[in-house]
Design a protein around this nucleic acid. Structure first.
Lengths: 353, 353
DNA sequence: CTGAAAGCGCTAACAC
DNA sequence: GTGTTAGCGCTTTCAG
């Protein structure tokens, strides 16, 4: 069943050019030690045969695949897919290919097969682009098998001895809160994400800390846990109005939930931002067109991805020799506040910020 | 610089088990021609060394990589990322890995490097998951290089001799129109997508055909071209009201544009669905929470992906020998109408459909 | 500057 | 059933 490959090989090129395969190898790897005369002759043959070296064979013999493994989850959500897009573009630019694995769920702990598949294909490194949810990253300090290639993690609590790149969700929460406070809102409720998510906990903590620092008292009735979905946002806002009647604004942990909050508040006959101010998180493309447009926190997943890939490649190319010989750094990137109508109370008339 | 790989090799297993590498190979490939005694002994060694065969070496020697190339574009949009997610899950299930390439834009025509990268890594097939836009698929009848592996295309006009899997956008458009007509709307406008997109043209054609068949006259002033973005939807709806004052409903070619249309109509003081009925396309998760909730057409990208992968694998495993020996089939999948408030005029009071 | 020999880790083909 | 030989397409090492 071995079927003659159609692609031409280094051997053919060598024989046509009348040199050894080694010389051809030198030419395709742009080594300096080839006479320009020989180089030209070989290059001509390469062009004529439209020869392309086999990355596969190269990987096997050089123990270097120029391929990165990427592990994601929830690709049909905007965050993960933006991140993947950023990884793809950064990797492409750096000349690396991507081997993609999507976990069936965020909390899968059956990760050994993932590693096996990636390692058996000799990836040079793995970018673990799965948010920290529940116990799903408990293994980071002792990865399975003998993973002797570098790992870079995204969107998790920074840890010692592990390279993590993430948006600073706490800072984002603080930015949202500062903005609401500046607008004069005093009774700020919170709809959080599911608390088994690290990102949700960071945002909640920001809400609490901001209130504390502003000397505003609050109780556990002033916030409700959602699950990121618009549906849960609708339920949460109903509950919140019930538990916190004086509420004059809400920091909502993502834009999807803010959307349904918007809808419900509107149906209640209340004005936004007059009666209730609203700030979301994520800046999904639609949020600019909500009614009213939504103030939110923008995360640059693209930048996160770019930095993660760069760090990965730097680790690889600096000659990774295992964790011992390496001091990893974690990087937290600041998000941005995007001010729109849903929170602009005080300066409504002079055109906003 | 060749650094001793940490992973154990077939050779080590063989020598520890006291058999030839060939026998180990037979065991790991679950070949029948090994005595159960030998098999057990070898298996024990494999387990003890936690040996994992190198997929790379295997690919090289067997000329079969069990890897699929996937080419996408616009991953940060919901459609492409859902599709990719479906491809990933179907491929995983079938035991194939995925090598991912994202084009920098939908209309890139610099596709040779993409093919080279994929081919040099010996993928068994390529799924071209980039929507047909402008001339970006003109090459399908003569792919570059000598691509002697199967190609399956997504979301393009079906063609002879090329396997295509796609949602039937025309049918989706007809479903949207039938629904509006059934609701008693008579003056139906259209906001199309950008017409260099195949999908946009299909939806526009459906609008025209539906009106023609319903014997409703229309002019070129009754529709406006958008570019999929919410922003363009806002502009389009303004223009449309201007050009078509009697309009009582709009079929909008995607949900993002429908969102801003919703907003503008609302600001105009008109009621939806009372004064203006609205139907979108795509069923993005948010559309259920628009104000009012949006009737739309649902595309099952997941199913498209699943079928594409299945077809691909079937082609591969049936022993692909080049296009000549193969009769490809194109598959069009029907979308679904999702009825919500934005279009429910006639039966508003008895609870809808 | 160039080539010969060995090997990356595995499988195909054939022998015994 | 099992082993031997050759080879996948390239790079490394070492001669010269």
């Amino acid at each position: 069943m071995r079927q003659k490959a159609v692609r031409s090989t280094i051997k053919e090129v060598a024989s046509v050019a009348g040199v050894s395969t080694q010389t051809v190898s030198r030419v395709i790897n742009a080594r300096p030690d080839v006479s320009s005369e020989t180089r030209k002759r070989v290059q001509d043959v390469i062009d004529k045969l439209s020869y392309q070296p086999s990355a596969l064979a190269r990987s096997l013999s050089s123990q270097r695949s120029y391929t990165l493994g990427v592990v994601t989850a929830g690709l049909s959500y905007i965050g993960p897919s933006r991140t993947l897009s950023g990884i793809a573009s950064a990797a492409e630019k750096a000349g690396y290919s991507l081997l993609l694995k999507e976990l069936p769920s965020f909390v899968t702990n059956d990760i050994e097969p993932i590693f096996q598949a990636l390692l058996s294909r000799h990836v040079d490194g793995i970018i673990w682009a799965v948010s920290e949810v529940g116990e799903n990253l408990n293994w980071v300090n002792k990865p399975p098998l003998d993973v002797n290639i570098p790992l870079v993690y995204l969107t998790m609590e920074p840890q010692k001895n592990i390279p993590v790149v993430s948006i600073d969700n706490y800072m984002g929460g603080r930015m949202a809160m500062s903005h609401l406070l500046e607008q004069g809102y005093q009774h700020i409720g919170h709809i959080s994400g599911p608390l088994d998510w690290w990102e949700a906990r960071q945002r909640l903590r920001a809400w609490k800390d901001a209130l504390t620092e502003a000397a505003i008292e609050f109780t556990e009735n002033h916030w409700v846990e959602g699950n990121w979905s618009s549906e849960s946002g609708a339920e949460a806002v109903v509950k919140l109005f019930d538990q916190y009647p004086q509420m004059d604004s809400i920091f909502v942990a993502n834009d999807q939930m803010a959307l349904s909050a918007l809808q419900l508040i509107h149906q209640k006959g209340l004005q936004i931002p007059g009666d209730i101010g609203l700030v979301g998180f994520d800046n999904i493309p639609e949020s600019e067109y909500f009614l009213p447009s939504l103030t939110t926190i923008q995360q640059d997943q693209y930048e996160v991805a770019r930095i993660a890939v760069e760090e990965m490649i730097q680790i690889i190319e600096s000659g990774w020799q295992g964790l011992e010989s390496f001091t990893p750094k974690s990087i937290m990137l600041p998000p941005t506040l995007v001010v729109r109508q849903s929170s602009l109370r005080s300066r409504e008339k002079d055109g906003g910020v």
